[in-house]
Amino acid sequence: MDDIFGIPAPLLFGQLLLGLINGAFYAMLSLGLAVIFGLLNIVNMAHGAQFMMGAFAAWMLLAWLGIGYWWALLIAPIIVAITGIILEKLFISRLYKLDHLYGLLLTFGLALIIEGVFRNEFGSSGLPYRIPTELSGAWDLGFMFMPVYRGWVVIAALALCLATWVIIEKTRLGAYLRAATENAALVQAFGVNVPRMVTLTYGFGVALAAIGGVLAAPIYSVNPQMGSNLIIVVFAVVVIGGMGSILGAILTGFALGVVEGLTKVFWPEASATVIFVIMAIVLLARPAGLFGRA
């Protein structure tokens, strides 16, 4: 087959596909961040730690209780969301009236504490989690070897992103949420319990992070710092997409996954930097992000 820019075409197709797979993780995580920022005005720096907690919850369910992957996909996010709701009630809810910076610092501190506790308890090397047998194996696509599990990750992420977008943009509940961010007092006057709704929204955003963690558990080592590498990139995705824009977060997540994947072929050393270069350019040209409202 022909070369494209000196790279064999099959390799390039493979990399595009891998970029989409990684983009699925970015999209899922930045979606949760965008929901939380858009509706609560909190920059949730604990998101990476909550992603990690999702993976650990899946591991604990299997190792301690014998509960497998499919149930973990449901139970782990609920457990992590409950911890998120407790955090929101105890700490975060006190900061809504203050500057963004306070929420950022608080959640950053929480992330460091959570990661530290897990590191003390489980060490830094990580724990093994097997790919469920239904999803093990791989397809030979000709141009690459495609693990079934990675295909599942993309499908699950797409479904999740679509469902979230529909709930927030197309349903009555979503309309309440959006209205509450515009004018909480007025929505409350209509008899909607706004503080509870906000708490549950935070819980939902955290659950999205945790689902990402469960999906990641079989392919990456389950370790306490697994979220901290990812979270920085995910923040860049949210900023590029436009803070609070749900569609922006999803599209940018997938797109940057592809850009990063291609950089890994042409200039691997720069693959961690490229996203931030794009972020700088976008911020210069469109300070509100690609899909944000100024």
Binding site: P10, G14, P268, S271, A272
Partner: peptide, 20 residues
């Protein structure tokens, strides 16, 4: 393939290059 340390979690892109 030289990848950025410690900012890399996913190695699949490099694994694909290795295979190729």
């Amino acid at each position: 393939a030289r990848y950025p340390f410690p900012a890399t979690t996913d190695f699949s892109a490099f694994l694909l290059q290795a295979r190729a």
